[in-house]
Every structure is written in C-alpha cells, then in structure tokens.
C-alpha cells in the first residue's frame, strides 16, 4: 500500500483548469521529487493534497484511506505535513511559539518530534528562539517552516520549493537536512525547479508541465534523459 496516491486528479481555480489527470504515488520511506518550471502546477498539486484547493475530480488516498474533500486541518491531523513555499512562518510569533503552536502528537509515531529534536537538526533556530518570525533571514525562515511542520509529527512531508531564493551554501545544507529528516522515518514529497538539488536527495521523480505529468521514474534516468529535460525543464 502506497503512503500517498493520486489518481487522475483534476483541479480548478474558479473556471480555469489547472491540473489535468495527475496520478502519482509515494511509498513509505521514500524521497520523491516533483520537478517542473514556474507555474507548472507543483504548488497546485500540493494544495490539492493538503485540501487547500480541493480537487474537482479524481482520488487522493493517504495510507489507503481517501482524503479528498477533507478540510486541511483534518488532513494534517492524519499525518500529512505541508511546508508552503515563500516560507510563510507566522511573523508575529517568536521562533519558539511558531514551533509550539502547531505541536501535535500522532498516536503511532514511536519517537515524536519535539522542540529539542527540531533544534538538533536546525541548531540555528535555538539561537534565534526569542526572535519574531519576521526578524529571521530567508534561510532561517525556511528552517523554521520545515521545523514547524515537523512539530505536527507528519508521516509524509510535502516540501514546496525549499531551495527557492536561498544561497548555494544554504541549499547544500538543506539537502543534508532533508536526508536527515528521511532517516528519522519521514516520507518526503519534494517540489522543486532545481533538478540537481532533487538528484542529491531523492531517488525517484516526476516531471510536471502545464498541469500534467510528463515523466515518472528514477532520478538517475531523468538526469541522463536530455529530451525530457530540454522539453519540460529548460528555461
């Protein structure tokens, strides 16, 4: 049984059709990438999964049970953690409050995420504990949003463009942290534009363009597939 499965999902914003028959699956313990250019439909796929934009048709199942049509907080409580793009941490709350406010224990997690555990992966956050979310740098905000979502103790983490707008050195660190999170037993679905970042952390990937999936397979095959890269990922 796949951890997450999408079957021909179609999503609309008002009258505009955004996702066309998107089907994908993520197995437990995997890091899977969803790669595509700006506006390809990555964020909409995530919004469809977490329920912020409910799909018009198709199926979304998490651990075998359907989650389409549930409210976002219900989907979150089942174990789907969403890390939004643009690092939307709560600006009026301190770093510690940002982490505390969403803390939630899932019944089945053997070693739940705590503030201490988040600090051990992102030591920088401990130093900025008393600062407001709005006072952090871009990289720190990204760590905070990831750490914040981990505090909901998700089994599946949806990471939306974590490397966007970060310095190359920070991106490299981020890749290591994602692997560390995977080693903690969290399954990750990663949306990215940066194919090399994906190749570093994941072994399987999908390519999305104009709201439809164009490729699904091993990252190593994708890296060498010049045609797909040229057609859907070249800027």
């Amino acid at each position: 049984m796949a951890m997450l499965e999408l079957k021909s999902v179609n999503t609309f914003y008002g009258r505009s059709h955004i996702l066309f028959d998107v089907s994908l699956s993520v197995e437990k313990g995997e890091v899977v990438s969803l790669i595509g250019r700006n506006g390809a439909g990555k964020s909409t796929t995530f919004r469809s999964i977490i329920g912020l934009t409910a799909p018009f048709s198709g199926e979304v199942t998490f651990k075998g049970s359907p989650i389409k049509g549930l409210r976002p907080h219900q989907i979150c409580r089942r174990g789907v953690g969403f890390v939004p793009e643009d690092r939307r941490c709560f600006p009026d709350l301190t770093v510690r409050e940002n982490l505390e406010v969403v803390a939630r224990r899932q019944k089945e997690t053997p070693s739940p995420w705590t503030i201490e555990k988040v600090y051990s992966i992102f030591p920088r956050l401990r130093e900025r504990e008393k600062n407001l979310g709005s006072q952090l740098s871009g990289g720190e905000q990204q760590m905070l949003t990831i750490g914040r979502t981990l505090m909901t103790n998700p089994e599946l983490l949806l990471l939306d463009e974590p490397s966007e707008g970060l310095a190359p050195l920070v991106v490299k660190m981020l890749a290591e942290m994602i692997i560390e999170i995977r080693n903690e037993g969290v399954t990750v679905l990663l949306a990215e534009q940066n194919i090399h970042f994906c190749a570093r952390v994941s072994d399987r990937g999908y390519v999305i363009d104009k709201g439809a999936l164009r490729y699904g397979g091993k990252m190593s095959d994708l890296i060498s597939n010049e045609e797909i890269k040229e057609k859907y990922l070249a800027v």
Binding site: R71, V102, R148
Partner: peptide, 25 residues
C-alpha cells in the same frame, strides 16, 4: 496560553494555520 498562540497564528496567516492542523472554524 496555547489558545492565545493559536489565535495569534490564525490571525497572521489563516491558510497556513489551517494546513498545519488548526481548526479555524
């Protein structure tokens, strides 16, 4: 209080609060 933090979080970004398991309703 925890309730207060939840209220302030909801007030600053209700969509994200919802997606992180806070029952906005």
């Amino acid at each position: 209080t925890r309730f207060g933090k939840v209220v302030r979080a909801t007030s600053s970004d209700r969509e994200i609060a919802d997606a992180l398991g806070i029952n906005m309703t």
